[in-house]
Design a protein around this nucleic acid. Structure first.
Lengths: 221, 221
DNA sequence: CGGGCCCTTGATATGAGTCAAGGGTGGTGG
DNA sequence: CCACCACCCTTGACTCATATCAAGGGCCCG
């Protein structure tokens, strides 16, 4: 069978990180390792002076971390566990050796980095062009994943991060995020808990994400 | 001597692209090649419905293009020459072979992709947090390059793209870009031509970029 | 049961967008 | 070589979305 993901090579060692703990911090020096998330959620952020944190990304099971600092001397971000996490720690040297032996793994690795560049370009494009409502709906759809098969209902999707984190990530304020989520709920398009949500009308959300006029959203009566 | 950049391996073939011509388009299928810019400037953009173009990036001499679509079937963007360009076309297969023979080149390539991810993350962070004036000043400083040695004056930096392109890239409107540039000029911080500019007070610009209150900018008298 | 923190919601302020008009520049054709 | 034309850049007045400031409520944890 074809190896589809570098994670299947069983490199590296396992590591548990409890909720609220740091996997690494900006000031850490060692950078020879990559991290693969087996389970749990983390946030990548840059503490930038004051108490203000710039959220770089949210990391989910199956994602890699640290591929932005290969060959660098210092981390560019801190990684904080939003839930209990199970992490694989992989030395870049190990990967390099693997790529040396098996050219195909080199292609896998290049493609992975390439996809990450594309993801970041897409994120930047969204930040450039989309308004608040559109950003939030895109964020929700991304977290909800692809549509389930016809008869099955939409699943509950976790939102392990705070509203503050969401707003930082989307370039908005907590107030705007809260307002918009409330409006989406009022319209019956999502159901909303403190740390999760359920898509109720995927088609409506997809229309907003596609750029449909968001005037649909009204202030609370 | 140490090889510092993949471009020094003299792979690939040369190609001239005149101003206004496309190097490739979104709909092109072939994706086995990368492009290295020897001279000239290009813009990467996505034609997204209507006449609206999303600017992905501006590409300068020494930059690589196409590293966001390694292993993909289709281009994610179109590349248009803003000036006459000299391009090296490099097959990814060639690079892969090189990496197979010389492990060090593999590290170079990984590091290059890694840096690109970091660049995109930084760009996204700027779009999330910075206001119009801050974005424009950061853009100018980035294009002006690092400060020259003490006695030498600031160099003239080219702006080969239209105001429309700049505004798309920064997530603003042409009107706002024009207004802000005019204000910077009025303050004596830059001198401004149609297709270029000169930094007159780097310290002032750096303060704004660092987040200094941008109220310094007033409406035209 | 109590307290702190985060989330929600309202009223108001403001920065950037929109609409629109005038002027400069570069390119084309006579 | 000059004149014309189209396109883009600049600038102004106004609008609107989102930030800001502020208060109340609910949830989780101790």
């Amino acid at each position: 069978m074809m190896v589809m993901d570098l994670a299947q090579y069983q490199l590296g060692t396992s590591l548990q990180v409890p909720r609220g703990a740091h996997l690494f911090r900006t000031q850490d020096e060692v950078c020879g390792d990559l991290h693969f998330v087996r389970s749990g959620h983390l946030k990548l952020y840059q503490p930038c002076g004051d108490g203000v944190n710039r959220i770089i990304d949210f990391v989910r099971p199956g994602d890699w971390m640290g591929i932005d600092t290969i060959g660098e001397q210092q981390r560019h971000a801190s990684a904080l566990a939003l839930t209990d996490c199970l992490i694989d720690v992989v030395q870049y040297r190990q990967l390099a050796e693997l790529m040396d032996e098996e050219p195909y793994s080199c292609d896998l690795f290049s493609a992975m980095l390439s996809r990450e560049i594309d993801r970041q370009q897409l994120a930047a494009a969204i930040l450039r062009s989309a308004g608040a409502c559109q950003r939030i709906v895109m964020f929700l759809l991304q977290r909800a994943g692809p549509a389930p098969q016809a008869p099955s209902p939409e699943m509950h999707s976790p939102l392990p991060m705070s509203r503050q984190d969401i707003s930082d990530y989307l370039g908005l304020t907590p107030a705007t995020v809260s307002r918009t989520l409330s409006a989406l709920k009022r319209n019956g398009w999502i159901s909303l808990g403190q740390r999760g949500f359920v898509v109720l009308s995927r088609s409506a959300l997809e229309q907003v994400a596609a750029g449909a006029p968001a005037n649909i959203i009204q202030h609370a009566a």
